[in-house]
Design a protein around this nucleic acid. Structure first.
Lengths: 269, 269
DNA sequence: AACTACTGTTGACAATAATGAACCAGAGGG
DNA sequence: CCCTCTGGTTCATTATTGTCAACAGTAGTT
């Protein structure tokens, strides 16, 4: 059940902004694999350019081949580039940290960030992978993604990231249903303590969500007014991104949102 | 000698700017692997986010995980970002197409391009991999790279890309030696017909070349004067990139270059 | 200097995971 | 209706892989 390529590729996940270079033994320890195994894997990945080894410290880091592949993808399907300006705008408009992500395997990959200019802000590490079930972006994406995706997530393991994380498939599905009605995902401290997230999905050409744009604020700062402002801005940004990347909204999406939105402040139909 | 991960990763090389989406059977044919094998590999790579499958056409393409990894690398070791402005400047200054590459496994990965504004110009495909032995960038990199790198290239296969390609290790080594003296690499139509290349290496922290910046011009347009101008500009750009990316030039590099350069136009010592 | 505790690297054998031919189901085309 | 594509799946065979041990080099300590 554990293919060797899968094991090799999980090695890449141990590299992060905070830890861009890792030694062989260290990497073996974390991945739970044998030193020799990791060594062989890294060698062939270095050969392919996915990683590279500094010849002085012997440490490994992500390689130049990744940049090359990213350029190819970005040239063929521009996303990060068309996304960033909208993200900057969203952050400025709301005064809070904005970020965007895309479905990447069994999780969300953060592909764009613009941090708030406030001193007290939510700070995100570049390239972090976000679990579907514990983030507003994940909920928003699941709500409007393919049936197969949500099924896979709901049947998979639901790690408790904080004490607020929904680890029960039933309750998680209820939250997804809510998002499906309102048009956006909303979570409070389910992934990290004191972080409140509001996210709206954007769509690919087939009308399924391929990711979400979100605004993250310190939980204690969240008010009814700020929430409404963010929901509005996030939904608008998502729509811009959808059309900007050649996606199409599914039938009835904007209408549903509008209706639900207008009912939010006072609860009237 | 053929590890499964290596085979899996070579699948990624079939994606290009011109062909960003590939079907299963097609990919199996090109890679020479079995359909079932390719399918399994793509499945696990999709799971890791390296590739993704469109649910309508079933075609595969490079995934969002690549963008994520690229962001991590770029955040930790900014290269493409610091490189691009210099590249733009170089292209404008010389009036020809400029590009930059980094060592990526057994080849060079193109990580930056700025095309000439002239109608008749050298056009490059994004994300192309450049063979060391057939490009000016490769020669420049080999000349100032680690001994181990040039040894690996010289003992490896030397495919004839054009009729001008040096496929003999001895003659190739002579060309590298020349570059080691002059400080830059120079090739004429060794990789593509009617393309003349001049490249200068930039260095990492340890003083070894980690890539090269190059200017490519239509061969017939090359003159003595243009050549001198390009050599000068390329060398200067490379130095800027070296220092801009935290690299250090090896002892004696600039001096050697200066001396050789001044001897170029008229041949005096 | 010797000892320790690391590191990255290499080799050999047992065990596991990859392989590839055959097969299924569906979509077009003639 | 047949033929030929496509993506996807199954399963016995076999080769690749994981494991473990030993090796070499380095840094810190006694």
């Amino acid at each position: 059940m554990s293919s060797t390529v899968a094991k090799a590729l999980t090695l890449l996940d141990h590299f992060s902004e905070n830890e861009p270079e890792i030694g062989l033994s260290d990497l073996a320890r974390r991945s739970g694999l044998d030193k020799a195994t990791v060594h062989r894997m890294l060698s062939v990945m270095a050969d392919a350019g996915l990683v590279e080894q500094r010849h002085d410290t012997k440490l490994y880091r992500l390689g130049a081949g990744i940049l090359r592949l990213a350029r190819i993808r970005e040239k063929a399907f521009p996303f990060a580039s068309v996304l960033q300006p909208e993200l900057d705008l969203l952050a400025q408009e709301t005064g809070e940290t904005a970020h965007a992500s895309l479905i990447s395997g069994r999780a969300l990959a953060t592909v764009g960030i613009c941090e708030s200019s406030k001193a007290n802000r939510v700070s995100l590490v570049v390239g972090e992978v976000l679990p579907f079930h514990a983030t507003a972006s994940g909920i928003a994406t699941l709500a409007f993604g393919t049936e197969e995706l949500s099924a896979r997530v709901l049947t998979g393991p639901l790690d408790g990231k904080t004490s607020f994380t929904l680890t029960d498939p039933g309750r998680l599905n209820a939250l997804i249903e809510t998002a499906r009605r309102t048009g956006f995902g909303e979570t409070d401290q389910t992934n990290e303590i004191d972080v409140y997230g509001i996210a709206a999905p954007y769509f690919d050409k087939t009308g399924f969500a391929c990711g979400a744009v979100a605004v993250a604020t310190p939980s204690h700062r969240m008010t009814e007014a700020l929430r409404d402002k963010i929901v509005d801005a996030v939904l608008r940004t998502a729509q811009v991104i959808t059309s900007g990347t050649g996606g199409t909204q599914p039938a009835g999406y904007p209408e549903t949102v509008r209706k639900t939105l207008s009912s939010l402040p006072d609860g009237s139909a």
